[in-house]
Design a protein around this nucleic acid. Structure first.
Lengths: 312, 312
DNA sequence: TCTACCCATAAAGAGAGCTTATCCATGAAG
DNA sequence: CTTCATGGATAAGCTCTCTTTATGGGTAGA
């Protein structure tokens, strides 16, 4: 059985302080405890080791040989632990681990995260994607951007974006299939996954409540990413979250034929992190950056919206 | 404030075991505590560091990056402490510190201690002399040979020798002052420190209760050592503890003219050590050796005694 | 599907360790 | 040579950490 297992480790911490300051009283002050407690701890260590470590002289203490022999080793061990913990804290302070969904990461965050890293060069960012919500107390994650209704117990949450949707198609398809002047015109085209519940919701909002979507060829791709690829390839009209495909729109790979954007008000993406981390510099930096970025996005959305209104 | 001061050190000990065994349950078994307690401690450490250290997977755990980073450092620190403590214990086990009086050390122990060191070559002996009784719980002393009445609370004590006394003088003085056939003859000689209470006691025991010691020239030397030197130099008769001057008798520097040896039955030299150390190998070795040595001395005394009886 | 393994959580009990109060010894100061 | 200041020891009581017992959940393997 190793010795360190039998020894009350706190006695060593106290011993280290006493050895360094050569005073019970001063050590107590440094450790935030009374001289009595220090005396107790030192005595406990001496009893455990079965050897005195200090000679109590009036107005000062001296090492015994055993004490002198032990002191430097213990100091070294604590230095090692201190270093390790400090290093850990440093790494912790300087790396931000973000947990989010693959979709949000790929279509929104990935394009923008570089700007954050430029703005906060001392913070290393680690992006971690998973489908299920991570438990902050279990996973080594600083914050998460989650899809859902809001945060939970003890979690701070900021709304990032609504999940909205509107039909999108490739410019080529639009050109070949003629102008789309009103929503009903879309029904002429092939809808990518007509089984998606967003379709009836959008048509209904567009004043086409009777749109017959049944019986259409169904290709279930399961993820916006794949539906978007299909749309870009000109295979049909997909109903997508425009915020995720702004680059594709900007580069002319996709067009949004109607300004009507529906949204599921109850759910959306939220930035979430434990309340207690509110004031951590890295958390604060990311939050501030993200919210500013979102505000900027809103402006773009409105600009796009007004342009489209005119072009309608 | 250093980190190690804020951290419950026991959590580190538990962490080290868990990191080594990669199992809460096994670590608990090794540390002699329940899995629950291990879980608590690990969680406590994680809470303190504000970062998870292990990922709880079904049927096994994994390091987080922080855990993997911390583990080797903590292991190293504990190894250091273990080494230091083991070293300390080794030194402790292998050095015997004896506290005794200067007189006993010089006249009895010094001549014999070499034999003990030959018999127990792995034990380093440190002789420490002081006049006052040392406190075992305070001074780094393994055992003491003290002058007094017996041991005390919680102390094991073995009688080492009575403090006895008998007149002694140099052979030269004996030759020049003629034969001493009876104790009263001593009064012809100069007594070294006739104020010593041992003189009247001895004369009284020798059947000379009326010995007039007053008015004699008084030289107070204060210590047997000096009185003995004076006697060896032929300055008179000293009353000495024969056990301390056996070498001087053997080499012919002193003679003991009468076999009568008085003793102060109440006091004497005692070997004393805390009860709890009874079974320490080094304590046992020294005690056994010392008692054997004393037994041998007793035999010599009796031999000398019988010789002297014949020569009387 | 059932069993076994491993960790988490809750509640309650034990005891280590801290504090307050007091004492003792010594060295310095008047 | 008192008196005061300094520094540690001791005693008693309390707090709160840590441990245990009991129980639950989740997954892998039979």
């Amino acid at each position: 059985m190793k010795l360190s297992r039998q020894i009350p480790l706190n006695t060593l911490r106290v011993f280290e302080a006493v050895a360094r300051l050569m005073s019970f009283t001063k050590a107590g002050a440094e450790l935030g405890m009374t001289q009595t407690a220090v005396s107790y701890q030192v005595k406990l260590l001496e009893d455990t080791l079965e050897t005195p470590l200090f000679l109590r002289r009036p107005r000062q203490i001296e090492f015994t040989e055993a004490g002198a022999r032990l002191a430097p080793k213990v100091a070294e061990a604590f230095a090692l632990i201190d270093d390790a913990l400090a290093g850990l804290k440093m790494v912790q302070d300087e790396t931000l681990t973000i947990s989010t969904t693959p979709t949000f990461a790929a279509h929104w965050l990935a394009q923008r995260i570089g700007k954050f890293q430029l703005a906060a060069p001392n913070i290393a960012v680690r992006l971690q994607t998973s489908l299920d919500l991570s438990d902050f107390s279990r996973e080594p994650v600083d914050l998460a951007i989650r899809y859902g209704t809001s945060g939970g117990q003890g979690l701070a949450s900021h709304h990032v974006m609504r999940i909205d949707y509107t039909p999108m198609l490739s410019p080529a398809l639009l050109a070949s299939e003629g102008p789309l002047t009103e929503p009903r015109d879309l029904l002429r085209l092939r809808l990518i996954d007509p089984g998606d519940p967003w379709w009836p919701a959008w048509f209904s909002a567009a004043g086409v409540p009777d749109a017959d979507l049944k019986g259409r060829p169904r290709t279930r791709l399961g993820s916006q990413t794949f539906e978007a690829s299909s749309a870009i390839a000109g295979h049909g009209v997909a109903i997508l979250t425009p915020a995720f495909y702004r680059p594709e729109v900007a580069t002319g790979q996709l067009v949004q034929p109607f300004s009507l954007v529906c949204s599921d008000d109850r759910t959306g993406y939220w930035l979430v992190y434990p309340e207690g981390r509110k004031h951590q510099p890295k958390i604060r930096a990311f939050r501030d950056w993200l919210l500013a970025e979102i505000a900027a996005d809103e402006n773009i959305r409105y600009l796009v919206g007004s342009n489209m209104a005119r072009s309608d």
